[in-house]
Amino acid sequence: MITMIAAAAENNELGAQNGMIWHLPDDFKRFKKLTSGHHVIMGRKTFESLDKPLPNRTNVVITRDKDYEKLGAVSVQSLEAALEIAQNDVQPFIIGGGEIYKMGLPFADKIELTRVHGTFANADTFFPEFSTDEWKLESETRHEIDEKHKYAFTYQTWVRR
């Protein structure tokens, strides 16, 4: 089962200038819990935006650069090659960025989406549109604003129909 996992705002905003627009600690904890022990597939810009490779996960980086080598990551030149590397993982995760999500949507069986309740005019990266004709909302849990979270958000699990 191939799962895309993302946090996107009301207009599908993901980030700006290769970074996050919001800080949601509980979402980070959920991301870590869901992806630990699995392959995480991402684009080069997403990988380079991290402080270090994500621990307890196989970091697979998609890049056009055939000579790209970074400690703690496996580099490939296509999504298909990334999925081949992850073929023995029961649930590899596609973790971004925008172009990788767009490429990954046709392959995905599930979307773990944190819908951030807000809009962000400075965003330059977006989650792809997906149709409720093709996807069914399986569950959702709302998280309100609190002392650690400036924005309310909802965890949504979507499964392909």
Rank of each mutant, 00 (worst) to 15 (best):
I145A: 14
D65K: 03
L14N: 14
V90F: 08
I145C: 13
Y155G: 04
I41F: 04
P92S: 08
T63H: 05
M4T: 09
G96Y: 06
L79Q: 05
F120W: 02
T46H: 03
F31K: 01
D109Y: 12
V116T: 03
Y101E: 11
H39R: 00
I2Q: 09
F31P: 06
W22I: 05
S36P: 15
G97N: 07
E69S: 12
R64M: 07
E13G: 12
K150A: 11
T63N: 10
E138S: 13
H38E: 10
T114D: 00
T63L: 13
L54E: 00
P92A: 08
L50K: 03
Q77P: 07
D109I: 10
T63P: 12
F120D: 13
N59S: 06
Y68C: 09
K102V: 10
P106T: 09
L105G: 06
V74N: 07
G43P: 06
K150C: 05
K33Q: 02
L71N: 13
N59L: 04
R160Y: 05
M4P: 03
D67K: 13
V90I: 13
L34N: 06
D133S: 13
P128H: 12
A123W: 04
G104K: 06
F28Q: 09
S36Q: 11
D65C: 09
H23T: 12
D26N: 11
Q156E: 15
D146K: 00
R160T: 01
H38S: 08
Y155H: 11
S75W: 01
E129Y: 13
H38P: 13
I5T: 00
P92G: 05
F126Q: 10
D146L: 04
E10Y: 13
D67H: 14
G96R: 05
T58I: 14
A9K: 02
L14W: 02
K148E: 08
K102E: 15
E84Q: 14
T35P: 03
N56S: 03
M20A: 08
F107T: 03
E147Y: 01
G98E: 04
V90Y: 10
A16Y: 12
Y155L: 13
V90A: 12
A121N: 14
K33M: 01
S78Y: 00
S49I: 07
R44M: 07
V159M: 04
K70I: 05
G43Y: 05
I95H: 02
T58G: 02
V116D: 01
P106I: 10
L24N: 01
D109C: 02
